[in-house]
Nucleic acid binder design. Structure first.
Lengths: 114, 114
DNA sequence: CTTCAGGTACGATGCAAGTCATACCTGAAG
DNA sequence: CTTCAGGTATGACTTGCATCGTACCTGAAG
């Protein structure tokens, strides 16, 4: 089961305004910081971020990140996978992920948070 | 006639969240895009940005940019100067101004908009 | 003094967005 | 089938924020 990607903007259509608005929220930024810190770009589950908010609100936040073009959401039916669109972001906004990576608790990192 | 700088956060105290929130607004981002495009970092007047909003709202926006640590506001009494904190931003968030510069209408530029 | 332009302070308003409650859907396990 | 966990849809609530109206301040010019 490879799942199916939920729709997001094309790489060339990424809008800096939408990206900044998405990253303006603390919870969404913490998600992006974790994703940027994992240079292996492993697919993550929604619960692996331990966000202190209800699941409905989490659904909302992941939707905003997807519509900004920052992540892919892979629909498995009763589960969902999150994957960073690293290549697209680097091509359109080079250096942005480095900024987020620098905000990672342990500073720059090449390994997943565990 | 040197004017007096209105207070803003120290260079090391710049917060990425506050920066993203500041850049989430279209008007504030257009100001920052213009400032980033002028590599000469000339001091600008508030009216030189031609923002299509009232002066009270402009005061609000410049205040947000200053409190985020992105600009200095020099108080001349009945006038105000705006200057980009390029060095501080580059040190704390390297690459951020390049992202904004790339959003400049004519693409990358080394000269003021005129 | 008065006049005027640039800027600020305060308050009110309207809208966008973050949050959650309820209800429902999906797939896996018994 | 039932049960359960993960996720979504809808609606309502609340907060934040962009905006402007009114009033006031500041400095320059007359």
């Amino acid at each position: 089961m490879t799942g199916r990607n939920l729709v997001g903007p094309e790489a060339d259509a990424l809008d800096l305004g939408a990206v900044f608005r998405a990253l303006a929220d603390e919870h969404r930024r913490s998600v992006m910081t974790e994703l940027a810190a994992d240079h292996g770009d492993a697919e993550r589950g929604c619960n692996s971020f331990a966000l202190p908010i209800s699941k409905q609100t989490q659904t909302h936040h992941f939707r905003v990140l997807r519509e900004a073009g920052l992540i892919d959401e892979i629909d498995y039916g009763n589960r969902k996978g999150i994957r960073l669109r690293r290549a697209d972001i680097e091509r359109r906004f080079p250096g942005l992920l480095t900024l987020l990576d620098a905000e990672s608790p342990g500073g720059h990192s090449s390994s997943p948070p565990g």
